[in-house]
């Protein structure tokens, strides 16, 4: 038996789904962010495996840029979370309902 590209794609799809479900279910903004990272990882795995199947380096180049964007996104997102948590300690995603006039 040999590991084919379909195995990696299936694993990527399952990992992406787990990240998406976590994003929908969890309320702690930090854990929601971690679920976004899981989804980015799933897409990275898909990129690399498809690039490997096609014999093309462009998949890995895409993953490189995804990593850069993920780092920038985490920096800004955590900055926003810190700013919110300072004002309202223990804020959760459900506190959006406060915005209702």
């Amino acid at each position: 038996m040999e590991v084919t590209v379909a195995w990696y794609l299936t694993l990527g799809a399952v990992l992406f789904t787990l990240g998406a479900v976590g994003l929908l279910v969890r309320r702690n903004p930090l854990v929601m962010f971690m679920c976004v990272e899981l989804m980015l990882n799933a897409v990275n795995l898909t990129f690399v495996s498809l690039g490997d199947a096609l014999g093309d380096l462009s998949g890995q180049v895409s993953v490189f840029f995804v990593l850069v964007v993920a780092a920038a996104e985490v920096v800004v997102g955590l900055g926003i979370i810190v700013a919110i948590m300072r004002r309202r300690a223990g804020a959760t995603a459900d506190d959006l309902s406060v915005l209702r006039g």
């Binding site: 590209v5 096609l54 014999g55 462009s58």
Partner: peptide, 12 residues
């Protein structure tokens, strides 16, 4: 499986 041709200038 994946279809399409790899780019000419970036072989793995």
């Amino acid at each position: 499986g994946p279809t399409g041709a790899p780019t000419a200038n970036a072989p793995l």
